[in-house]
Simulated assay, not measured.
Amino acid sequence: MSIKITETRDLATCFALRHTVFVTEQGVPVEEEQDALDADATHLLAQDGNFPVGTARILFQGDVAKVGRVCVLQSARGTGLGADIIRATVAIARETPGIARVKLGAQTHALGFYEKLGFQAFGPVYDDAGIDHRDMVLELV
């Protein structure tokens, strides 16, 4: 694999990846997968050569970088790509003036994955698009 992760304005490709993972694989209703926040987000695209394999978005709200819509195609799972995408989002947050923490809503089966990357869970489990989630945070300061 020759992976590169970059900021992108190619929302069509990001949406196609998200559709494959969230709508097709996980059964998230299509009308809930995209939202108005996409227009204001910073989007990351992971590519293996020229083939798109993962994506995430970051929303900057006050002193918080909110990471979401993190996905990796099934063919690229288990390679460390998901962790690389999260590390890329954290690096962008660290480089953004005034950002003190990174937050995300993790599917409960992925809590351990995010904990290994330094995130800590807080608050109750909640339903998001029919999937149990829990909020997590990584303090940058």
Rank of each mutant, 00 (worst) to 15 (best):
M1C: 06
S2E: 15
I3H: 07
I5V: 13
E7G: 13
T8M: 04
L11A: 04
A12S: 15
A12F: 13
T13L: 04
C14L: 07
F15E: 12
F15M: 14
A16G: 04
A16Y: 01
T20Q: 15
T20C: 14
F22R: 03
V23T: 12
Q26L: 14
Q26K: 06
Q26I: 06
G27K: 03
V28F: 03
V28N: 06
V28A: 06
P29F: 06
P29L: 11
P29I: 14
E32V: 10
Q34K: 15
Q34S: 14
D35T: 13
A36W: 06
A36M: 07
L37Y: 11
D38E: 15
A39P: 10
A39I: 15
A39F: 11
A39H: 13
H43D: 05
H43F: 08
L44W: 01
L44K: 04
L44M: 06
L45P: 11
L45Q: 03
A46S: 12
A46H: 09
G49E: 09
G49I: 12
G49Y: 11
N50V: 13
P52M: 04
P52W: 03
V53Q: 04
V53A: 06
V53H: 01
G54P: 10
G54Y: 03
T55Q: 04
A56I: 02
A56P: 06
I58D: 00
F60L: 12
Q61L: 14
A65G: 09
K66S: 00
K66M: 00
V67P: 01
V67N: 00
R69V: 02
R69Y: 08
V70C: 07
L73I: 13
Q74P: 04
S75P: 09
R77D: 07
G78L: 11
T79L: 03
L81T: 05
L81H: 05
G82E: 02
A83T: 01
A83Q: 03
A83S: 14
I85D: 01
I85W: 04
A88S: 15
A88R: 14
T89A: 06
T89W: 01
I92Q: 04
I92C: 05
R94P: 07
R94I: 01
P97V: 08
G98S: 15
G98I: 04
A100L: 03
A100P: 00
A100Q: 05
R101I: 00
L104D: 02
L104V: 01
G105I: 02
G105P: 01
A106S: 11
Q107N: 12
H109K: 09
L111P: 09
L111M: 12
Y114N: 05
K116C: 05
K116G: 10
L117P: 08
G118F: 10
G118T: 11
F119G: 07
F119T: 03
Q120S: 14
Q120E: 12
Q120G: 07
A121R: 12
A121L: 09
A121C: 14
A121G: 13
G123F: 12
P124I: 01
P124K: 08
V125N: 04
A129G: 09
G130L: 06
I131C: 10
I131T: 03
D132S: 15
D135W: 08
L138M: 11
L138E: 00
E139K: 08
